[in-house]
Amino acid sequence: MPATTRATPPMEVLDPLLHQPLRTQLAAFLAGAGEASFSELKQNLGVSDGNLESHLKKLIAADYVSLRRSEGPGRAQTRYTLTPTGLDALQRYIQALQKLLPLGDGRSSGALGDALAG
């Protein structure tokens, strides 16, 4: 008699736009900070202008990040914010990672699981 094989659900596909170290950092930073200027992002992420510009453009094109110009006494500053679409995508990305490496549900075992579970 053939052994019954339990159907495993397909693996969650990670969002390719967020599955890039700098863009993950960008989205996570904006999710925590609420909004940030270009120089704040550059300072906190430690990247070059061109690199940050390029990745921000990708996130803006996908409607993950929006911008607004703040008028002040000095030069107008651009502030970047994570849009609801971006926040939702980041949450789904984190959930997908959690599904790939189940923590705290009894299935994770071994040194890695213990270490990550704290």
Partner: peptide
């Protein structure tokens, strides 16, 4: 490689 991965985001892929 990064541009080709963005299949789920046609606008981003197209622009780049």
């Amino acid at each position: 490689p990064d541009v080709l991965q963005d299949g789920r985001h046609p606008a981003s892929m197209f622009i780049h």
